[in-house]
Design a protein around this nucleic acid. Structure first.
Length: 789
DNA sequence: CTTAGCCGGGG
DNA sequence: GTGTACGGCTAAG
């Protein structure tokens, strides 16, 4: 039978671990089970093997249940060796045996003792989630008992995706599980479902509303819809951290059981100490929040902002204190609330359509469950890819670093990329070049791998270091990376040839997934938690890269007489004047001198740029599109006026090339602040109170402001956004934070807003203009820029 | 300068 | 569940 693997899990039946595969069949969904797979670990013998085998078998007698000990030929960091595979009864026997073997004489090391059972199953059976699987076996109850399993061919099927959002009554700031009910559940699916489940009837009929008796009833109805429509994927926004944990607590309180899992199981919240995650067996639960955080850099990840930046949709947010009032007041306010809730689910679905395809592709490359892959960092993705490749090539998988080793690694540092000190100020007609995937190319070209690393030789030597990398055998990591890069090149070729837009889009996502992975290998080797960590490798990649970028800069300056105004790691910015052809000649020449797959590319032309310091600059292209790096105000506890002023200054410099105009904008803003010609909104700073006031050790401005709210008889609770302004006075800044509702424009401290908000935002840029203090002082008798402003 | 503590998203 | 985040920023030391 053929099935598309959606999810995998295991459970214990009669003391035996049974792997459960959730499959989407060609006709119907089904569950297949496999009880033939046993957990194991490896022990490395330090000397004579016979005795060790005996000792392990004896140690296993009784409680620890050793099924078998097998001598295998394996490799460890490329070296051939013998390892003992210790096969056990149940995954939970593994940690116990691990401890026993560690203390047995003659065992050097225990390996592969912490690989989750189902993940190991996927690797060893060589199957992958979101792929078609051929299973042979016999029906037993509602399940198929697997006799044989293998990968199969097939087209990616339509997956049924449900986006959902819950609204919770919250009269005291953050809602309290024991008291505050869930008042709405909104649903939007790619099968056309649009629905808000609630238990308060709006005055007028709204077609997508289903009014039920009470909270319990909407929860039950949610379960019913889930089971009837049998969704493959469930998406939400911050649902790991809020919606599902809250739902689970409410269910306990209401003494209600919801079987949302495909096998009738309940939602499980895992990882209490770290970040929680909500698992729904048989379906993938995807929380878009962590995905979007990794995928796009934004100043705020509030849903409304994400939707605005990513989808270009304007959507209003209902502030926390308004939500419960709207519910209480009913009438039009209730209708508004219902519509907003519906909108939340709808935009979540739109975001899912945008971000899920990449997760699908990463899942298919890394070959671990979608639920897990969607929560992995880039380093984890690389690691799972390496783990599978290691097993294929009988490489033993190294352990994660233990306590002290991890600390040692975090303390190891090395020199990173080369950054050229910029020519400060405005430059015109700039050509930008960068190396195509420089770090991955260096790893492959120079065969950089823990197993090829040597010291004190001369072949393939790392510039400036006593390291070199043998080219005798292709390293484990470069081999995998090369494969990935080849694959991606072929994909890009197919994109160029394809005429079918849909196919192009699919291939585009695939090549992008490969790019993400390829670009993560360098970081991985320098990541302290990595199994294949090797500082010297990461260090060498950076050293080779520095050599190449410096070499190319030298060619630009000495052979082509092009002025290099800036460059960072893998890029260089040169003044090209009006001779655009020269850029291409330079490029062609450079590429003849570069070895292996290392290649320089032309990134673009810009008509103007401002360079402030390393990593801080702004460019404008021929179509007036502005790119800003390192200057943006990403923190939300900046007053709006500071950010706006910075943007206006940048625009004056880039579009008008007018430092005078920039200066006058700053001057005008300062005047406005001094003369109090600003709005409250301009100067209000927002920070969330995330716990009770007394729980804070550090007293920050928003905490002081919250204390003042309490003093005035207002209730504050965790979760409230505190809006405050900094007022006049001589005390510390934090002591001068006042809740915005208790102050007027007469109270704020202009000097604070000028010195701590406006100045940091614009001063660096203004200074980089080569704006001598003298120039700024012209006509104004002041000593410094600060005073002049 | 380094170190310790806090924050995010959700309602 | 054969597992335990993370990177950025601020105030204090």
């Amino acid at each position: 039978m053929k099935g598309f693997l959606l999810d995998i899990d295991y459970e214990t039946r009669d003391g035996r671990a049974v792997v459960k595969l959730f499959l989407k069949g060609e006709e119907a969904n089904f569950i297949a089970v496999d009880d033939s797979f046993l957990p194991y670990l490896y022990a490395l013998p330090s000397g004579e093997v016979e005795g060790l085998v005996e000792r392990i078998r004896e140690a296993g007698n009784g409680e620890s249940r050793v099924k078998d000990v097998l001598l295998e030929d394996k490799k460890f960091f490329g070296r051939d060796l013998k390892a003992l595979k210790v096969v056990l009864e149940h995954p939970q026997d593994v940690p116990r045996l691990r401890e026993i073997i560690k203390n047995i004489e003659g065992a050097d090391m225990v390996l592969e003792h912490d690989i989750l059972f189902v993940r190991r199953y996927l690797i060893d059976r060589d199957i992958a989630p979101l792929s078609w699987i051929e299973v042979e076996g016999e029906k037993s109850n509602a399940e198929l008992r697997i006799r044989k399993i293998s990968l199969a061919e097939g087209k990616f099927p339509e997956l049924k995706v449900l986006a959902f959002d819950t609204e919770v009554y919250n009269p005291k700031g953050a809602p309290r599980e024991k008291v505050d009910p869930i008042i709405m559940i909104s649903l939007a699916s790619n099968t056309g479902l649009r629905k808000v489940l609630t238990w308060k009837k709006p005055d007028r009929n709204i077609d997508f509303v289903e009014v039920l008796e009470n909270e319990k009833a909407i929860l039950k109805r949610f379960e019913e819809i889930m089971r009837q429509e049998d969704f493959d994927i469930l998406v939400g926004y911050n649902t790991d951290n809020f919606d599902f944990p809250y739902l689970v607590e409410r269910l306990k309180k209401l003494e209600l059981v919801l079987a949302l899992g495909r096998d009738g199981s309940e939602v499980q919240i895992k990882g209490r100490r770290a970040l929680p995650e909500a698992r729904i067996k048989g379906r993938a639960h995807i929380d878009l929040y962590p995905i979007i955080r990794r995928a796009v850099k934004l100043s705020s990840y509030v849903l409304e902002n994400v939707v605005k930046e990513v989808l270009g949709i304007k959507k209003e947010k209902i502030p926390g204190d308004k939500l419960w009032r709207d519910w209480d007041e009913g009438g039009e306010n209730l209708e508004k609330l219902i519509k907003y809730s519906m909108e939340d689910a709808e935009v979540t679905l739109r975001l899912a359509e945008k971000f899920l395809p990449l997760q699908y592709e990463l899942t298919r490359i890394v070959k671990q469950p979608l639920h897990d892959v969607s929560r992995m960092t880039a380093g984890q993705l690389v690691e799972w890819l390496l783990m599978r490749e290691a097993s294929k090539g009988s490489e033993l998988i190294p352990n994660h670093p233990a306590g002290e080793e991890f600390i040692r690694r975090t303390e190891e540092t090395y020199i990173g990329g080369y950054v050229r000190e910029p020519k400060k100020g405005i430059s015109e007609d700039i050509a930008v070049f960068d190396f195509r995937s420089l770090y991955p190319s260096v790893i492959v070209t120079h065969n950089i791998d823990p197993s090829t690393f040597m010291r004190g030789r001369n072949e393939n030597r790392v510039p400036g270091l006593d390291y070199c990398f043998s080219k005798e055998k292709k390293g484990f990591i470069p081999a995998i990376l090369e494969n990935l890069i080849d694959h991606r090149m072929k994909m890009k070729q197919r994109i160029r040839q394809s005429k079918d837009e849909l196919e192009k889009r699919m291939l585009e996502v695939q090549q992008y997934a490969l790019k993400i992975l390829a670009n993560s290998f360098y970081g991985y080797m320098g990541y302290p938690r990595a199994r294949w960590y090797k500082k010297e490798c990461a260090e060498s990649v950076a050293a080779f890269a520095r050599m190449y970028i410096q070499k190319v800069m030298k060619i630009a300056e000495e052979e082509f007489k092009l002025e290099v105004v800036y460059g960072d790691t893998d890029s260089l910015f040169v003044l090209i004047g009006k001779e655009k052809e020269k850029a291409l000649q330079f490029l062609e020449h450079v590429n003849k001198t570069l070895p292996g797959i290392i290649e320089l590319e032309h990134e673009g032309f810009y008509k103007r740029g401002i360079f402030v310091t390393k990593k801080r600059y702004a460019l404008i292209d021929e179509w007036d599109k502005i790119t800003v790096k390192g200057l943006e105000f990403v923190r939300r506890d900046w007053a709006p006026i500071a950010k706006r002023t910075q943007q206006e200054v940048l625009s004056a410099l880039l579009k008008d090339a007018s430092p005078e105009k920039a200066a006058s904008i700053v001057r005008k803003t300062i005047e406005d602040i001094r003369s109090r010609n600003v709005s409250m909104e301009d100067i209000t700073i927002y920070t969330q109170l995330t716990k009770g006031i007394s729980a804070y050790k550090n007293i920050e401005p928003h905490v002081i402001a919250a204390q003042k709210l309490v003093k005035r008889g207002r209730e504050v609770a965790p979760g409230m956004i505190i809006s405050y302004v900094i007022t006049k006075g001589t005390k510390m800044i934090s002591q001068r934070a006042e809740p915005v509702e208790f102050v007027s424009l007469q109270d704020y401290d202009p000097e604070y807003y000028i010195e701590n908000q406006i100045m940091p935002a614009v001063l660096r840029i203004i200074e980089a203009m080569g704006y001598s203090k003298d120039y700024l002082k012209e006509g104004i008798e002041q000593e410094s820029i600060k005073k002049w402003f």
